[in-house]
């Protein structure tokens, strides 16, 4: 098939997909295949598409994504472990016309920061939360997280998580979906092109909800940690599909707006 030469295809005018503008040239420190990279890119694409680079404030967590501020060229604050929702609350209240999001792992959000996220969502802060659930503490060497599946082996559950010893995996997204302050709660993933496109739409919706001031938008991304899981990146995606999605099913959990004050006032009338 000598109908067209490769060099005639690879021309500026034929470019249809490349690195988003908001992603910096700094090489990401993430392990090969890490979901964090795709999640970063999708946030960056949404910021590019909405043309809000100078109006977006990210709050990075403690965890592998602590250095997220090196990779997206926007304003950032780096929070103490689990405290990103508090910083986001302050940033959004002081600068209500900016787009404010937290980016947090499962150790950060569902363990040490559980109180923080529940209260921010319960207050209905007009922020977007990006929650990377890889069911493990990636950064510190693969310890068990609140979201680790029962039977899953980690550095601190070498025989597999046991409910007797370690309790049950925490479906924090389901808890958050019950709070009156949240507008949009969804669970997505980034392991296939179709999943990537859906997650991008979800992030866009989360950001647009900030314009509508309808409460918190919470986007869980079920993710992999090939280093912590001790599988190759491709095998990690397969393991995630086979096991994680059964316990953490993908889809929307809530899509409306925060509840009205009226519906709560009636109790003292």
């Amino acid at each position: 098939m000598a109908d067209i030469d490769i060099k005639d295809i690879i021309k500026e005018e034929n470019l249809i997909y490349t690195k988003p503008k908001v992603i910096t040239d700094t090489v990401m420190h993430y392990c090969p295949g890490c979901s964090h990279g795709v999640a970063h890119k999708l946030v960056a694409e949404v910021i590019d598409d909405m043309d809000i680079q100078d109006k977006t404030i990210g709050i990075s967590p403690v965890g592998c994504s602590v250095l997220a501020y090196n990779y997206l060229d926007i304003d950032w604050q780096q929070a103490a472990h689990g405290r990103a929702p508090a910083l986001a609350t302050a940033a959004k209240r002081l600068m209500p016309n900016h787009y404010v999001f937290t980016y947090q792992g499962d150790g950060d959000l569902a363990s040490i920061g559980a109180a923080e996220i529940l209260h921010a969502c319960n207050r209905g802060e007009n922020i977007t939360v990006i929650f990377i659930n890889n069911a493990i503490y990636g950064m510190t060497g693969g310890q068990m997280a609140p979201t680790t599946l029962v039977g899953m082996k980690t550095a601190t559950s070498p025989y597999g998580r046991s409910t007797e010893l370690n309790g049950y995996p925490l479906k924090i997204t389901e808890l958050i979906a019950q709070l009156p302050g949240v507008a949009y709660v969804t669970r997505q993933s980034v392991h296939t092109p179709a999943a990537v496109r859906k997650t991008k739409k979800a992030i866009r919706k989360g950001f647009e909800n900030q314009d509508k001031k309808i409460g918190t938008s919470f986007i869980e991304i079920v993710s992999t940690c090939s280093s912590g899981w001790k599988l190759s990146p491709v095998k990690s995606n397969e393991w995630m599909e086979e096991h994680m999605f059964k316990f953490y099913p993908l889809g929307d959990l809530k899509d409306s707006e925060k509840e009205s004050e009226e519906s709560y006032k009636k109790y003292i009338e």
Binding site: L15, K19, I23, R197
Partner: peptide
Amino acid sequence: QVCPDSVISVYR
């Protein structure tokens, strides 16, 4: 779209 390191450019 799936590349975590955003190192692929696509032409069509």
